[in-house]
C-alpha cells in the first residue's frame, strides 16, 4: 500500500498531463460528435434528447440542388485558388531564395503580410480594393481574396523546401545541356513536389472552409460555408447537421489522406 502510494505521487505530474490531454481531446471532439448525432434525429427541430433516429435528412440533403450546387461552386473556387496560389507562391519563393537580389528580407515580409493581418481586416480591405478597381463581387472576387490569403502559406512551405535543395542539382542539369526553363521543370519542380502537395492541400481546405472573405466578396451564389450560415440564420433543422456532417467527413478524409501521403513521402 505504501509503495503504491509513493508511486502514485511520483507519477502524479504524468497522470495530470495525461488527464489534461484526454480532457482536451473530449473538448475538441464532443461538439462535433453531438452535431453529427443530431443529423440522425427524426424531428424537424434541433434539441436534445434524440428519441428516434432516421437517415431521412441525408436523403434530403443529397437531393438538394442548392447543396449540390454549393459543393460544385466551392470546389471550383478551391481549384482555381490553388492553381493561381501555387504559381504565384512558387514564383515569390524563387525570388526570395535567389542570391544577389536586393531587399529579399523586405520582399519576404511583405509577401507574408496577408497572413498576419487579422482576417476581417484582410477581407474588408479586399472588398474596398475590388470596389476601387470596379471588379464586381462574385466568383472572380472570391478567388482573388482566397488566393491573396493562401499565397503567403505557399511561399513559406515552398521556401523551406527550396532552401534544403543542393545547387548541384540544377547545375548538373545545365551542364548536361538543359536550359534554365527545362532545368526548372525537370529538376526543381520534382524536388519541390512534397511542398507543392502540402501547399495544394492547404489551399484547397482553407478555400473550402473560408467564411469571412467569401462573406464580403461573394455574390448571390453561395459557397458551402455561406449556405450553411444562411441555413443557420434562417431557422435550424437537422438538415444543416446532415450537410455539415457530409462536409466534415469529406474534408477530414482529404486531410487524413494528405497527412498519410506527406508522411510517406518524407520517409
Amino acid at each position: 500500500m505504501n509503495s503504491f502510494a509513493s508511486r502514485y505521487f511520483t507519477d502524479l505530474p504524468k497522470t495530470a498531463l495525461s488527464a489534461s490531454y484526454w480532457i482536451f481531446v473530449i473538448y475538441l471532439l464532443l461538439p462535433l460528435s453531438l452535431m453529427m448525432a443530431m443529423s440522425f434525429k427524426e424531428a424537424s427541430f434541433i434539441a436534445f434528447p434524440i428519441q428516434s433516429w432516421t437517415l431521412d435528412w441525408y436523403a434530403k440533403v443529397l437531393q438538394d440542388q442548392q447543396f449540390l450546387g454549393a459543393v460544385g461552386y466551392s470546389i471550383f473556387i478551391a481549384v482555381a485558388t490553388t492553381v493561381i496560389a501555387l504559381i504565384i507562391g512558387v514564383w515569390i519563393a524563387l525570388l526570395v531564395a535567389a542570391e544577389g537580389i536586393w531587399g529579399r528580407a523586405m520582399i519576404f515580409a511583405l509577401a507574408c503580410l496577408p497572413a498576419v493581418v487579422p482576417g476581417l481586416i484582410n477581407a474588408i480591405s479586399m472588398r474596398i480594393f475590388i470596389r476601387v478597381l470596379d471588379i464586381p463581387t462574385g466568383t472572380g472576387a472570391i478567388i482573388l481574396g482566397h488566393t491573396v490569403h493562401a499565397v503567403p502559406f505557399v511561399v513559406v512551405m515552398v521556401l523551406t523546401r527550396l532552401r534544403s535543395m543542393p545547387h548541384s542539382l540544377t547545375d548538373a542539369a545545365r551542364d548536361l545541356g538543359a536550359d534554365n526553363f527545362v532545368a526548372f521543370l525537370r529538376v526543381t519542380v520534382p524536388y519541390l513536389a512534397p511542398a507543392l502537395a502540402g501547399s495544394a492541400i492547404f489551399c484547397v481546405l482553407s478555400s473550402i472552409d473560408d467564411f469571412v472573405r467569401t462573406f464580403f466578396l461573394g455574390g448571390y451564389q453561395p459557397t458551402l460555408p455561406m449556405l450553411i450560415f444562411a441555413k443557420v440564420q434562417g431557422g435550424m433543422s437537422p438538415e444543416i447537421n446532415a450537410m455539415a456532417t457530409i462536409v466534415l467527413i469529406v474534408t477530414a478524409a482529404v486531410g487524413l489522406y494528405a497527412e498519410h501521403f506527406t508522411r510517406r513521402s518524407k520517409a
Partner: peptide
C-alpha cells in the same frame, strides 16, 4: 488533436451551439 480543425470555421462554431443551447446537450 488536428482532425477537428479540418472542419471549417462555420461548422465548428455551429457545433458549439449543439452543446450550449438552451435545449442543447
Amino acid at each position: 488533436l488536428l482532425v477537428p480543425f479540418w472542419a471549417g470555421e462555420i461548422i465548428r462554431t455551429f457545433s458549439v451551439i449543439m452543446l450550449l443551447a438552451n435545449r442543447g446537450a
